[in-house]
Amino acid sequence: MSRRLTREQQLVAWQSASLLLDYPDEGLLERLDLLREASHQLPAAVGEPLRQVVVRLGSTPLPDLQADYVATFDSRRRCNLFLTYFAHGDTRKRGVALLRFKQAYLASGFDLEQAGGELPDHLCVVLEYAACVDPEQGRQLLLDHRAGLELLRMSLVDMRSPWAGVLQSVSATLPALRGDERDAVRRLAAEGPPEEEVGLTPYGTPQFDAALTDRGASVDLPMPTVRGA
Rank of each mutant, 00 (worst) to 15 (best):
C132Y: 02
D64L: 09
A45Y: 09
P135F: 01
Q114D: 07
R51C: 14
L83T: 08
V70C: 09
V126A: 04
P61G: 15
G116S: 03
L127M: 08
A45H: 13
F110D: 03
D134V: 02
A45D: 09
V96E: 13
G95I: 01
D64F: 04
R94W: 12
R94H: 12
L127W: 06
L57A: 00
D68P: 06
E136N: 01
C124H: 04
A71C: 11
A45T: 08
G117F: 02
P63V: 07
P43K: 12
D134N: 07
E118C: 04
G117Q: 01
E113N: 03
G89I: 10
D64Y: 06
A97L: 00
V55N: 11
V126D: 09
A104T: 15
G138S: 06
Q103L: 12
V53L: 09
V53S: 06
H88V: 02
C124A: 11
A67I: 03
L98I: 03
S39P: 08
P49F: 13
G116C: 07
D111A: 06
E136L: 01
N80M: 08
K93V: 02
R76H: 15
L127D: 00
L106Y: 10
Y85H: 09
V54H: 09
C132T: 09
Y69S: 07
L62G: 10
L127K: 03
L62C: 07
L50D: 09
V126Y: 02
G58Q: 11
H88S: 04
G89A: 12
F110N: 01
P61W: 12
L83A: 01
R51Y: 14
R139V: 04
L50C: 05
Y105P: 06
E128D: 15
L35Q: 06
G109T: 06
D111R: 14
Q66E: 10
F110Y: 05
Q66F: 05
D90M: 08
T91S: 15
G47S: 11
A107N: 14
A67V: 08
G89V: 14
R76M: 12
Q140T: 05
E113C: 03
L42C: 09
L106H: 11
R51A: 15
R92H: 08
D111Y: 10
A67H: 13
G117I: 00
R76I: 02
A67D: 12
F110K: 00
D111C: 10
C79M: 14
D121N: 07
P61S: 15
P120T: 05
V46L: 07
G58L: 15
T72Y: 07
F82Q: 11
A71P: 05
D134W: 01
C79N: 10
A87E: 15
D90N: 12
D134M: 00
G89R: 08
L81N: 08
C79F: 09
E136T: 00
L98Y: 02
A115V: 04
R51H: 11
L106I: 09
C124M: 07
A71T: 03
A97I: 01
N80Q: 10
R56G: 05
A131I: 00
V53Q: 12
R78Y: 13
L65H: 15
A107F: 10
R139E: 06
A44N: 14
Y129R: 02
